[in-house]
Design a protein around this nucleic acid. Structure first.
Lengths: 237, 237
DNA sequence: AGATTGAGCTCGCCA
DNA sequence: TGGCGAGGTCAATCT
């Protein structure tokens, strides 16, 4: 028997289960479609009644119960936990993924296996760009874009209440706290500035740098007498 | 030819492509494994070089390029966008998912199709529980758990800077602002209380209700003279 | 449709 | 390991 083959539903439960067990053990990514119940318990809890659905098991131990509609899975377990795949007598395939910290358990019980795919992912070169760090670098290199005479003093300056994105000094010598957002700034963004002002003192100025801000953020910003500087990431990168 | 069948890799590209096209058109969830390049552009951008990987296409238009290790996909597009599946001459299967607002495009080009699964998800009854709202309700019903003599006045009380989780009144008649977290409270949680105090006035008291809090959150809480009440969700539900 | 907020967020970074 | 912040966050809810 070829244990590397996919299952087709036209074979015994035991045989199908063995194929999946074997595929996972050999380090493949495994897709399984069949009837199962799913039970998650941990930070939250979610139970899925018997139904036909699909499960993805990755060699790292990441486990997903696919949602039929959404991007996010119905249930899942991140990689790093303890995963066991076992054939329970002659009735069910059991997949268990448990992790501690947080203490969580995902249990899947297949009572019927219909289809599966096993495959090995081949490496590739991915290029990702467009992070907030890149905007920081741009501002540090071009501080006059924010304000004439501004000079950057420190990047990611540590404080008791989090790191200041960019710590700078204006033309008059006053120290300036910059909070940078790559998209619309929210109340939280202004609160961050507020925390930094709390610890750095009122002699500082605070500037929020973002492509835009929500109405409520603008209100709070004005109330705190902070400043706003519009900067669109797409225009500088 | 049975267009409902899965592909096996032992057939022509055209035939395999037609099967996938047909499966998607008929409302199935489709898994495909093969060699492809992936290109995303929108709020960010990410390009994946040619490689063997798997793609999940759902009838809602949700599209995922599976990560070999992680729970989160390498690339994706949420449901609701415009999805087209087409066979490009006799060389490649092209899957395109475009949405506006935000303006984003995900393009997948398969130059080789190896395996596929097509299936229909059967409905089931999912039970989900364990939300922050449930904790709110518990506190509203049992305010003395927080403090003797406390009475809840309003749930989700609207303010200019966000909604107060629970607005209450203590034994002495002073109004109290409760911010509830179902897990460890962070700096943000304290900042939320801070915003509410800004708008409600210093005559109020502020209490953070959570199972625990981070060190920095505790510092800021003390600095603001807010109070903390330990409440574990698992102990009340 | 836009804004806001929670989430079992996930993930990566750094002390 | 734990805290902290970013994310193409996603997805639900309300305006």
């Amino acid at each position: 028997m070829d244990y590397s083959a996919n299952i087709t539903g036209e074979e015994s439960m035991q045989r199908a289960a063995n194929k999946i067990l074997n595929a996972h053990a050999s380090g493949d990514i495994v897709f399984v479609v069949g009837d199962c119940t799913v039970s998650y318990d941990g930070r939250g809890w979610k139970y899925l009644d018997e139904g036909k659905r699909s499960v993805v098991l990755k060699p790292t131990g990441a486990l997903l119960v696919t949602s039929p509609e959404k991007v996010k899975p119905e249930n899942w377990q991140p990689s790093g936990g303890n995963v066991t795949v076992s054939f329970d007598g002659d009735t069910a395939l059991h997949i268990s993924a448990v992790r501690e910290n947080p203490d969580e358990s995902l249990q899947i019980r297949f009572t019927n296996l219909e289809q599966s795919i096993h495959y090995t992912h081949t490496e590739d070169n991915a290029s990702v760009e467009g992070t907030e760090k890149e905007i920081h670098e741009y501002i540090i290199d071009n501080p006059s874009e924010i304000e004439d005479g501004l000079r950057a003093l420190e990047h990611e300056k540590e404080t008791e209440f989090g790191d200041i994105d960019i710590y700078a000094r204006d033309a008059s010598g006053t120290h300036v706290i910059l909070e940078v957002k790559r998209k619309t700034a929210t109340l939280d963004s202004v609160s961050q500035l507020n925390r930094y002002m709390t610890v750095m003192g009122d002699s500082h100025r605070a500037i929020l740098v973002a492509p835009s801000m929500t109405d409520s953020a603008e209100k709070l910003l004005n109330e705190n007498q902070f400043q706003f500087c519009r900067l669109k990431p797409t225009e500088i990168l």
